[in-house]
Write a protein that binds this DNA or RNA. Structure first.
Lengths: 197, 197, 197, 197
DNA sequence: CCGTAAGCGAGACGGTACGTCCGGTCTTCTC
DNA sequence: GAGAAGACCGGACGTACCGTCTCGCTTACGG
């Protein structure tokens, strides 16, 4: 019956161009970082007219955001596992983030993402979600509540933000990561820090 | 006898120019943000030759770092007080940071500082120190340890990083701040989150 | 029986589209001049796909040439009359050309036509013919020969070219037209300039 | 005493850059013609930043005008000689112009100059003056008046414009030049065309 | 108190990238 | 198969800044 067709005319968006642009963006982002990423170079690298980029993405930020969403900028190893032991799972996850900081170029990668996030709200949100899998961390903490490893009224969102935030602060402050830092951070936040008083 | 003088010759650095440059930088930073801050505009605004800037600061980052250090970019209200009640002091401090996010333009200000930090290590370190009063937080936590509000082996650095980091994550993710968030965050990090088991 | 039909198949060329394109071209030409005339704008203004233009005209020049031929660019008042008095007829004709130069926008119009002529041979030829009514001037001069106002061996073509050329030079040189210039030009070319010796 | 110094500050204009730009312009103009002359290519060819061009010339037209003035676009062989025989001198001069039309690429050269003239008033005036040496033709005609080869009240300006104009019309109309055309044109304009009537 | 070495304002310079406009071609769908 | 729509690659536009380099001062030692 084709009700509500909304009929469009003219050629349809080229998927080939879209993929070429995104992968050129990812490639150049990894090489040069967000601030040195030039639209002109992306277009050249992708074999595409600049207009084809501007037609679909309003800014560099949006372009990077989409790359991030497609998992082209970060290794896909940040999912939180659920072994039943909350502390171990969190330490493992934070450790993987710290590992990136220690890799050559990894610190720059993370800082570049932060730079992108300052310009683009989507990247900002996605940085929060994508590193922790948004869901991923929320789900894991909820599961911990269920198994009463966490109190029912524990501020799940704040715990997640504090953990990720600590990683960002490390990246921005160029603080080298030492053995055991991940564990110390998780302990700090999960909080057996209070004394007996 | 002035041995070892090695005296320079020629005119001495102009303090007037230095102050004009820094205040032009601060003014334009507040107006336009870090990314839209142009050396050329700073020079024009300050009534100064570009060379005079480059003679004393190697880059935009250093210039902003010095502004930050001189307290020209952020309101100077981040010192941690010590009322004897650690939790109250921390909540008060975090609340003041959150207040900035809520002010009009305040979120942009903080994001601009983060952007500067991604480019310049000094800004990165100073952001960490300046928000937390550098030592300020470490001193306060140490005092808490002394009064045994905190365990002796509490990971002081990690607690500080987590708190500041959470604020940054909020700024990047454009998360609006709600009543009670500061308290929830502090509780999360000070960590009475663990359940009874 | 329609022998020799050779009938094409499919839709026939749309006369509506053709007219819309030509009149959009004429309208935009008058507004913006030849150099600022954009195929894309013509198509939009005419409510026509770009391909429809390119299917029938190989270039902007041809398009303008056809407009010129259809009399859509210039007022149709350049025919040479034949009152029996050659000098009077020529002065009248040149005066009408000079009048265009004096009208607001008229100088730009003529210069735009010249610009088109530099790019497109058809326009060049047509400009020569259209201003001089092609044949119009040749016919008039021939008539003058017949009535022995002109010698039999007078170089008719050269006289025509010199008259039209003088108008073009005026347009290109932005020389304001003064009272009596038309007469002086005709006299110069018809040539009672030689002295007594 | 140095009255009226008018003190300028900052580095002085680079003569090297100026010459590089002009000669690149002339080179590319000859190769590609006015319409295909790209500021970007001029800058590249001259080894100069685009801004350095735009700083001193507001448009392509002005740039070409200055080249023309410096004699970099046209062979410098258009001066009118004065052998005492006006007709012979004019025929010789027109013939040299026609020769350009006959050379390979010469027609394009002249048409390119006309195209430049439609965009830029200076070029227009200079085309009128430079081909005839403005002065050059006026001087020659005045000299003819003195030797009473021309009447005292002969319309000198109109004669000059008609001659040059005829050349332009030939260029625009792509009319091939034939033997004897120059003489015929000069005769037409000097005008022993009037019959006995 | 003169010479020389800086500092300073101004601003020209070679470059890179920006975001826009348009050229001419190709693709999709409708009439 | 013509036509409206519009995406595509590419090239040029004119502008904004970058960081470096003269200029013609002015300032402040040091011989």
């Amino acid at each position: 019956m084709n009700v509500m067709t909304g009929r469009r005319r003219g050629a349809v968006r080229s998927e080939a161009a879209r993929r070429a642009i995104l992968s050129a963006t990812a490639r150049l982002f990894a090489q040069a970082g967000y601030d040195n990423l030039a639209m002109e170079r992306i277009a050249a690298e992708a074999g595409v007219g600049k207009q084809t980029i501007y037609r679909w993405w309003p800014s560099k930020g949006e372009l990077v955001a989409e790359c991030l969403l497609e998992g082209m900028l970060l290794p896909q190893r940040f999912a939180l596992t659920d072994t039943g032991d909350l502390r171990a799972d969190l330490v493992d996850w934070i450790q993987r983030l710290f590992d990136i900081l220690s890799e050559p170029g990894g610190e720059g990668l993370l800082r570049s993402l932060i730079a992108a996030a300052t310009e683009n709200a989507d990247v900002g949100r996605r940085l929060r979600d994508s590193l922790g899998g948004t869901s991923s961390i929320a789900v894991r903490l909820a599961s911990a509540v269920a198994s009463s490893q966490l109190r029912a009224d524990a501020p799940l969102q704040e715990v997640g933000e504090a953990l990720i935030g600590a990683v960002l602060v490390r990246a921005l402050g160029r603080v080298p990561v030492a053995e055991g830092d991940a564990a110390r951070l998780v302990d700090a936040v999960l909080g057996n820090s209070l004394g007996g008083g």
